[in-house]
Nucleic acid binder design. Structure first.
Length: 801
DNA sequence: AGCACGCCGACT
DNA sequence: GTCGGCGTGCTC
């Protein structure tokens, strides 16, 4: 019996199945999808069996044997193996990268090199003797002395010791000691034998009598009685309880926001949507659910899932980043209880692994999670939902560069189940597909509770400046804030911070302090009083004089949330402010805590960045202020207008969701821009039409597909040379239907002392593109890589900056 | 990717 | 004479 194995090395010549002989005793256990430990060259590697066959094309005597099987049941399903095969061509990644993307990181291998003693009698060196005094094997990592290392090297050649690779799983199953308490009569008997000095043991046994026959965790017993572990061990030793180790799940403890969700009475619009969904509930159809903020998309999801579960099937719900939307999370938990697993970046590797196993074992029916949850190992999917489908976080920005939407559609075809893409502001791509009938368009124009959408005011900050207001609050917004503070209503202030963090600027010569390794300004971090580069991590102290002109007029500039917070407390003394940004949410559970405090009315103002734009739903929010709408607008990216529109619409939707009417102020330096004007009017369709015209004119998606190829090299001449060479090479091979743009220097032209260039392929239909690009990769891997050039290909870039 | 094999310069 | 530099080639 022969097994085809994909091994744990992401490199061009290794990216194919290798044949191994299956030892007789393993024949019953091996099957595609199990992880194995295999010899590879002179080392040991983890690998995945992808196929079992009777014969190999290679000479059987050359084949090595599988050394160990790491799973009793396969970790990869047949579906995943098929999906990996499709994925590697679709996103141009190595098969092993695709496979690992589908599994929790806990199942990756941890490699450890160990020196094992073979022949103690020939161990003559005293240092080496000391090393192996008590042990037969020691981790190679522990040997740091160069002298000892060279002695060991000699021993290894003489066969006295042997270097061995240990393949370990990163995180394992958590086990807990479980006690089965004996019967009352049994314990009483033991009590009578107890020495009178053993007061603590008596105390514990007395407690146990009250819990006779129960099965409890050792941890629980210790906590309830307060005795020392040694006392418990003594009592167990005497036979008062039987112990065993049992597998337990780590508890990612979800904050219950007290939002006990019951199915709502659906509105007429919702009922129509449900009807349409039900008609094709076992078709591999993709629906685009376009519903204004507050129209009750979540309720649609919940009822759809309810139906799916009742038919014995499973559901995947993707949210942009679950730890950012605890309200959604809590709503699913309260509706479906233990049938829900959560998967998000806030969980530890162990917690993720446990949630994954719950899914694999069929103990849960619903998974709510971020991007990677799209690979949840369900085997009978009934629906896949992508909430806020326009979010760019659904696209992975490093290998494998997949888009969760594409994976969702692939899986929906495999299981013949629907995909629901939900958004108040669909991506142009999805809306265009829906318009063409590729997706089914479902629309909800009204808020479920019939409350009107908030009134949006656009404030021209140029006028403010003219009138001598240099603060970041316009007169109108400041007035509106004061009014809410008086009325004890809540306010959300949104700072559109991307690409606009604080930097240090010299007021005399205009110099900003740059990173020495990258072509970008350093960011000022108030907490640690340092300047940091977000690309390479370089750190330096804040200078007291300008590095260029030595002027003392150098200070940090820009509008970070901290700065806004200061201004708020100056402008509105007494207002209680909660700040939510990367700094205040670094700790686990901090998001939930901040939102809970705000929901409980412990603050008047919630101040934050992107992360507060979504999912907030508190009845007392009646005012939303967008301090700077322009920052995303000015990005040199073809999606800048779309992103701005989406963001403004999302934040606006936070106001007046319940009984009290809401109001929104958008401050901007370009009030006439169509993205801002359409956001003001809550009008998606007109925005869509206008943006589509721009995309058509400039030949961008959804009219053209994009492929972005990026290059980097320490030598500026080399990058530009290879980028140019690539562009030429591609132009020769691609049809005249496609355009190759570039080469151009990247927006950030240097990162970590490597110069960056890029080129862009625009195409409508290019039949041999994948093959051509694979040839390019081959050329890069075999020839260019040696010169120090790096190249990456993104088949569907979320940004071309 | 990592490691062995292999052919040329500065040291005990 | 040997130790070690990293070019090249292979891994079932």
């Amino acid at each position: 019996m022969i097994a085809e194995v994909i091994v744990d090395i992401a490199a061009y010549p290794i990216d194919k199945p290798f044949d191994y002989v299956v030892p007789k005793e393993m024949e019953d256990i091996v099957e595609p999808g199990v992880r194995v430990k295999v010899p590879f060259g002179n080392r040991k590697l983890l690998g995945f069996i992808t196929e079992i066959k009777d014969e190999s094309d290679l000479n059987i005597v050359k084949l090595k044997q599988i050394e160990e099987i790491l799973d009793i049941t396969p970790v990869l399903t047949k579906e995943m193996l098929e999906m990996a095969d499709w994925m590697k061509n679709h996103v141009l990644c190595f098969e092993i990268d695709a496979l690992f993307a589908m599994l929790p990181s806990a199942l990756k291998a941890k490699y450890e090199r160990v020196i094992r003693l073979k022949d103690r009698s020939r161990l003559v060196d005293s240092e080496a003797q000391a090393l192996f005094e008590k042990r037969e094997a020691i981790p190679l990592h522990d040997v740091t002395s160069m002298k000892l290392l060279s002695i060991l090297k000699k021993y290894s050649e003489e066969g006295i010791i042997e270097v061995e690779t240990i393949v370990k799983q990163k995180t394992s199953v958590k086990k807990e000691r479980i006690l089965t308490i004996q019967s009352e009569t049994e314990i009483s008997k033991l009590l009578s034998l107890l020495s009178p000095q053993a007061k603590k043991q008596k105390e514990l046994m007395d407690w146990m009598i009250g819990h006779a026959g129960e099965i409890l965790s050792a941890k629980y017993v210790l906590e309830s009685t307060g005795v020392q572990p040694a006392v418990l061990n003594a009592v167990i030793e005497k036979g008062a309880a039987i112990t065993s180790m049992e597998e337990v799940y780590r508890d990612p403890n979800i904050v219950d926001l007290g939002d006990h969700s019951v199915p709502f009475q659906v509105t007429e619009e919702q009922a129509k949507v449900m009807d349409a969904l039900m008609k094709e509930k076992d078709q591999p159809a993709t629906f685009l659910l376009h519903g204004v903020t507050g129209s009750g998309k979540t309720e649609i999801y919940l009822q759809m899932i309810q139906d799916v579960i009742s038919r014995g099937k499973e559901a995947i719900v993707l949210v942009p980043e679950i730890s950012l939307t605890p309200q959604m999370n809590s709503r699913f938990k309260s509706r479906f209880g233990d049938l829900v697993a959560v998967m998000h970046s806030g969980l530890s590797a162990g917690e993720k692994y446990d949630e994954w196993r719950k899914i694999q074992r069929g103990e849960v029916k619903v998974v709510v999670g971020a991007r990677s949850a799209i690979f949840a190992p369900f085997t009978n999917l009934g629906v896949i939902i992508l909430d806020e489908e326009h979010e760019s976080t659904y696209k992975q920005d490093d290998t494998p560069r997949y888009h969760a939407r594409d994976i969702a559609i692939w899986r929906s075809q495999y299981y013949s189940c629907p995909v629901i893409l939900g958004s108040a502001t669909p991506s142009l791509e999805s809306y265009a597909r829906a318009s063409k009938g590729v997706y089914r368009l479902l629309t909800m124009k009204e808020r479920a509770n019939h409350h009107p959408l908030p009134a949006v005011h656009v404030v021209d900050m140029r006028d403010e400046l003219k009138n001598g207001n240099r603060s970041m609050f316009s007169v109108d917004l400041a007035d509106a804030v004061r009014k809410r503070l008086e009325r004890k209503e809540q306010i959300v202030l949104f700072l559109n911070k991307r690409g606009y963090s604080s930097f240090v600027l010299c007021r005399d010569c205009g110099t900003t302090v740059q990173c020495p390794n990258c072509d970008i300004s350093l960011t000022y971090h108030r907490a640690s009083e340092v300047l940091r580069c977000h690309y390479c991590g370089h750190e330096e102290h804040v200078p007291t004089n300008c590095p260029e002109c030595s002027s003392e007029h150098i200070r940090f500039f820009g509008t970070g949330t901290q700065k806004v917070e200061e201004e708020v407390s100056k402008l509105f003394p007494g207002a209680r402010v909660l700040r939510m940004d990367v700094d205040t949410t670094r700790q686990k559970g901090a998001h939930e805590a901040i939102l809970k405090d705000f929901g409980d009315g412990k603050a008047d103002i919630l101040l934050g960045t992107q992360m507060i734009a979504k999912g907030l739903d508190f009845p007392n929010i009646t005012l939303v202020g967008v301090l700077t709408a322009d920052t995303t607008l000015n990005l040199s990216d073809f999606r800048a207008a779309e992103k701005t529109f989406q963001l403004l619409t999302q934040v606006s939707g936070r106001a007046g969701r319940h009984d009290k009417p809401g109001e929104v102020f958008i401050q901007t330096y370009s009030p006439e821009h169509y993205a801002i004007q359409h956001a003001k009017n809550h009008s998606y369709e007109p925005f869509y039409r206008q943006e589509m015209m721009a995309r058509k004119q400039y030949e961008y998606p959804p009219f053209y597909y994009l492929t972005l190829i990026q290059f980097s090299h320490e030598d500026l001449m080399k990058v530009s040379e290879y980028a140019g060479k690539t562009v030429e090479w591609l132009r020769q091979r691609l049809s005249d239907q496609s355009a190759v743009i570039g080469p151009t220097a990247a927006a950030i032209s240097r990162v970590n002392n490597r110069y960056r260039y890029q080129c862009l392929i625009k195409y409508k239909k290019e039949i041999g593109l994948t093959e051509t690009l694979q040839q390019l990769i081959k050329m890069y891997r075999t020839e260019w890589l040696k010169t120090g050039l790096y190249m990456t290909i993104d088949m569907d870039p979320s940004t071309i900056m």
